[in-house]
């Protein structure tokens, strides 16, 4: 079990101010990985803000996020939910020690279904 990072730390890592959120849900409306995720982008914003971080850190959702940044692009308030999801992911990865994606391992993971975008963002996700 991952123990929770404090809210302030996640906000510092991400540079996100969740109080800017007006709870319109456009981030989750636009998310292509929505059905794969247990917690959705708007929930990340809300849950990090209220300090409910442990469930997020223990959820697969942080690795289901494609880092496509559609939510960042379309958020009318400039909240940037993907950056917050990435901060939670980094928090988990850091606790696990060296958890890097190595370029050599990539060919073994490939299948035809994976979009290019996912590979690129996988480096972004795992190599922090």
């Amino acid at each position: 079990m991952n123990k929770a990072y404090p809210t302030e730390e996640l906000l510092r890592i991400s540079g996100v101010n969740p109080n800017k959120c007006m709870k319109c849900g456009k981030c989750s409306a636009t998310c292509p990985a929505y059905d794969e995720m247990e917690y959705h982008p708007h929930q990340f914003v809300s849950m990090v803000n209220s300090g409910d971080i442990e469930p997020l850190m223990n959820s697969e959702s942080i690795f289901k996020c494609l880092s496509c940044f559609a939510c960042v692009d379309r958020c009318p308030r400039g909240v940037e939910p993907a950056k917050l999801i990435e901060a939670v992911r980094i928090a988990v990865v850091r606790k696990q020690g060296n958890n890097h994606l190595l370029a050599d391992d990539v060919p073994n993971m490939l299948d035809d279904e994976i979009p290019q975008q996912a590979i690129v963002s996988a480096f972004r996700k795992y190599s922090k």
Partner: peptide, 25 residues
């Protein structure tokens, strides 16, 4: 909730949106 995107497909417009009360897309 908000509409995230609209994609024209054939005669239809595919609307993807969130329902925040039911926590559904």
């Amino acid at each position: 909730g908000m509409v995230g995107k609209v994609v024209p497909e054939g005669e239809k417009l595919k609307v993807q949106a969130s329902d925040l009360i039911e926590n559904k897309q």
